[in-house]
């Protein structure tokens, strides 16, 4: 899924990055420290951010991308505020974890490994989380949901939506 990076909303961080580039552009081999700075600032590397870096350091954008994708430290998709991980280990799988994953994907409209455009949720499937006797298991952030069935998925997700909304009203 394409995630739209909002340059306006991130203007302050973009300025930070640009200042960092400006200050250090003469340092030899500074591309990786700049990428690290950007990863730290934004939590991931959006295409627009990599283009800013390419222009700022006057290196081809292909090289920026090539370098960034080489190192596992750099990520290209923001994680959501709430990370929903669904165990797809054997025990959970036989108890219908795949169905649950599909349900979560349907409700959120994103795929495994992706994040919703509002940055509220992301989905991560994992292998065994060590609670096989409670299969199928869903984790939302640090909260464990045991023996989940398809019908409950909606309610689980709703819980986190509500929390966020309440927060907005404060």
């Amino acid at each position: 899924m394409d995630f739209k990076f909002d340059i306006e909303k991130n203007m302050e961080k973009v300025r930070c990055l640009e200042t960092f580039i400006e200050k250090n552009r003469q340092v030899p081999g500074v591309l990786i420290p700049v990428l690290q700075e950007a990863q730290g600032l934004f939590g991931y590397l959006a295409r627009e951010v990599m283009e800013i870096i390419a222009r700022g350091l006057d290196v081809p954008v292909s090289k920026v991308f090539g370098v960034a994708t080489y190192y596992t430290q750099f990520t290209f998709m923001p994680k959501g505020e709430n990370d929903i991980s669904i165990c797809l280990g054997t025990a959970c799988y036989v108890k219908g974890a795949q169905e649950i994953l599909e349900e979560v994907q349907n409700i959120l409209g994103i795929k495994d490994g992706e994040t919703t455009p509002d940055l509220k949720f992301s989905i991560t499937s994992t292998r065994c989380v060590g609670d096989c006797s409670l299969a199928p298991v869903v984790l939302v952030n640090d909260d464990i949901y045991p023996n989940v069935n398809k019908k409950e998925v909606k309610d689980i997700i709703a819980k986190y939506k509500v929390e966020v909304e309440c927060y907005d009203h404060l």
């Binding site: 081809p60 292909s62 090289k63 991308f65 090539g66 994708t69 080489y70």
Partner: peptide
């Protein structure tokens, strides 16, 4: 032209 690069590893 620098279009091509290795991607990933």
């Amino acid at each position: 032209v620098d279009v091509l690069t290795e991607i990933g590893r």
